[in-house]
C-alpha cells in the first residue's frame, strides 16, 4: 500500500531521514517506534505532505503523493497536539471538518462512545486536554478511509477512553484498514501491533513482528527488547 524509497530530509544541518526505505502492505497495525528525535513524526509528516522531503519517493497505491493533495481524502490523521480555534464549539468544529471532506461521516456513534454529548455546545478553548484529545479522535475516526495515521493517540486519555480507542483500532483492522501508530507506551504496542517498524538515525533499523523482535533480542519483555535494540 505504501512504498517509500530512498527518502532524505534535512532540517538545516540536522539530517533526520537518511535514505529511508519502507514497504507497508495493506491491512494491519504498524507501530512506528524509535528514540526521541529518530524521525518518526518527520516520516509521518512526509507521508501527509506536511514536510517536503529533499530527495526520494513516496507512493501510496502505486501513485506518487509528493505535491499532491487529493490522496489525503483516503487518509485519516490524528495530530500529536490537539489545539483548535478557541472560539468554535465542538459541534461547529466537527461540522467544519465534515464540510471540508466530500465523505460520509459517522460522528454520532463516536460522540456517544466517548461521552462527548454534554460538551457539544462548549467552546473548544474551555475543554480539558483529555476532552480535546477525544474530540481529536472523533475527527480522525469519523471518516471511512483506507489509511489511518495516529501520532501519539493515547496522550491525556483516561483508562475507559483508552479501552475504546484500542477497540476502534482493532475494528478498523478487521475492516481491512492500514493503521500506522507512533507511541511511547509499550504495553499498547504489545497489545495491538502486528508489526514494528523501528527507526534509528533516519533509517529503518528493524521491521517485523513483536515476536520476531523478542526473538532477535533474546528478551521476553517488549520494553527491554526495544531498549536492547537502541543500545
Amino acid at each position: 500500500m505504501i512504498s517509500i524509497k530512498n527518502l532524505h530530509k534535512k532540517f538545516g544541518k540536522l539530517t533526520v531521514l537518511d535514505g529511508l526505505d519502507l514497504e507497508i502492505n495493506k491491512g494491519g497495525i504498524f507501530a512506528i517506534l524509535g528514540p526521541n528525535g529518530s524521525g518518526k513524526t518527520t516520516l509521518i509528516k512526509c507521508l501527509l505532505g506536511m514536510v517536503i522531503p529533499n530527495k526520494g519517493e513516496i507512493k501510496i497505491d502505486d501513485k506518487s503523493v509528493l505535491n499532491k493533495w487529493e490522496y489525503r481524502n483516503n487518509l485519516n490523521y490524528l495530530p500529536q497536539i490537539a489545539n483548535f480555534p478557541t472560539n468554535l464549539s465542538v459541534s461547529e468544529l466537527i461540522n467544519m471538518v465534515k464540510n471540508l471532506r466530500p465523505k460520509q461521516a459517522n460522528e454520532q456513534e463516536l460522540i456517544d462512545l466517548f461521552g462527548l454529548t454534554p460538551f457539544l455546545n462548549k467552546k473548544l478553548g474551555n475543554l480539558s486536554g483529555g476532552t480535546k484529545q477525544k474530540v481529536n479522535l472523533v475527527l480522525t475516526f469519523m471518516f471511512d478511509s483506507e489509511l489511518i495515521i495516529l501520532d501519539e493517540p493515547t496522550t491525556g486519555l483516561d483508562p475507559i477512553a483508552l479501552i475504546h480507542l484500542k477497540e476502534l483500532i482493532q475494528k478498523a483492522k478487521t475492516n481491512g484498514k492500514t493503521i500506522l501508530i507512533t507511541t511511547h507506551i509499550m504495553s499498547v504496542v504489545d497489545e495491538i501491533a502486528d508489526e514494528i517498524v523501528f527507526l534509528l538515525d533516519g533509517k529503518i533499523y528493524f521491521k517485523g513482528s513483536v515476536t520476531a523482535l523478542k526473538k532477535q533480542t533474546n528478551q521476553t519483555n517488549l520494553e527491554h527488547a526495544i531498549a536492547e535494540l537502541m543500545s
Binding site: L48, E70, R72, N73, L75, N83, F84, P85, L100, P102
Partner: peptide
C-alpha cells in the same frame, strides 16, 4: 492557529 492549520493540512485541501 498553527496546530489547527496542521489539522487542515492533513485534510484533502491544497496548501
Amino acid at each position: 492557529s498553527k496546530e489547527f492549520t496542521e489539522l487542515l493540512l492533513a485534510q484533502p485541501i491544497k496548501r
